[in-house]
């Protein structure tokens, strides 16, 4: 992988992800369903990882994690580690059949959300925070995962469009 190939994706991450993180805390709470907030940053990072692979997926996860850590009350680095680990696993599906089937990206986001929260909760528990695993999974993590999966159906299209804008296909000249 040539580092130069990363530039368009890196530049996009630098302006898009801070904005999305800001919107996540200010606007997205108006779309809460019974106290459940969708994770637009997580969706975006997972979709980008599916489309662009491990390198860019993890780059986006790292930038997004840092942005979320600024606004989050969790110990600094919790979002970053959770997102980077999730992206490293999800991105393995790039170039395979994940993006060829309409239902696989939402299913991936569903699994990624659960993994993200499990990692975050594990970090929190290991930093001496009380975690009620059963309640957290039942009342928050699984509902958020379902919400994210549903939201990812239009979301994946948007990220695909963004990708084709950031990396336009070369035009054939006759």
């Amino acid at each position: 992988m040539n580092v130069r190939n990363l530039h368009p994706g890196f530049v996009t991450a630098l302006w898009l992800l801070p904005i999305l993180s800001l919107l996540q805390g200010t606007v997205v709470n108006h779309f809460a369903f019974r106290g459940i907030l969708p994770g637009i940053v997580l969706i975006c990072v997972v979709d980008w990882g599916i489309l662009r692979g491990t390198d860019e997926g993890m780059l986006w996860a790292f930038v997004a994690g840092l942005c979320l850590d600024v606004f989050s009350g969790w110990p600094p680095g919790t979002n970053t580690v959770a997102l980077v680990v999730v992206a490293s696993i999800v991105s393995l599906g790039q170039g395979t059949f994940i993006r060829t089937h309409a239902l696989l990206p939402p299913a991936t986001v569903f699994g990624a959300t659960i993994l993200f929260y499990c990692i975050a909760l594990f970090i929190l528990e290991s930093t001496r925070h009380q975690v009620a695993w059963g309640d957290a999974l039942r009342d928050t993590v699984i509902p958020v995962a379902i919400y994210n999966a549903v939201l990812n159906i239009p979301g994946f299209r948007l990220v695909q469009r963004l990708e084709s804008h950031v990396y336009p296909l070369p035009r054939a000249h006759w």
Partner: peptide, 25 residues
């Protein structure tokens, strides 16, 4: 191999942010 190295860098960097949280604050 380069991609794997690149991924490892981010993983290490992420854990460093977590471990050095107090200084990152």
């Amino acid at each position: 191999r380069g991609g794997r190295r690149f991924a490892a860098v981010f993983l290490v960097a992420a854990f460093l942010v977590l471990l050095l949280g107090r200084w990152v604050k």
